[in-house]
Amino acid sequence: MKTKLVLNFNPEASNLPITHNLIAEYGLLVNILRAEIDEIGGKMVIEVSGDDDSTNKGVEYLKKAGVGVRPFKEGVRRNDEICTHCGVCVSICPTSALILDHETRKVTFVEEKCVACGVCIDACPPRAMEILI
């Protein structure tokens, strides 16, 4: 099973080899989708693959290490009240997470494909895309 997680670090936790530990100790495959780390801490979006049990244990480990863990669902959002379905974002998104339906001419946000790169945020004219990580 693949799970996308948003991690928030304080400066201490930034120094822990957490991805290494997730891989070595819990047998999870870790794909780093986005990382921003500086002296005041950092944020990271990762995709972990492994069975449920290991994933849960991995998450427990992260929490104990002082890392904030949130499901990715809360990471990137589209505000449907604001979106005009203009389609500006569709040719910008590197993972085709924003798709224009050629029949209805509506734009769908496919969360599973989103890697939280943030490219669409400042491209959306009415500012319907929000990144919260």
């Binding site: 203009c86 389609g87 500006v88 974002c89 040719s91 910008i92 224009l100 001419r105 004219p125």
Partner: peptide, 14 residues
Amino acid sequence: DVPTSPLSSIYKAR
């Protein structure tokens, strides 16, 4: 091969 984006909303136009 270049992806295209409309700027105006055909959905709203319809």
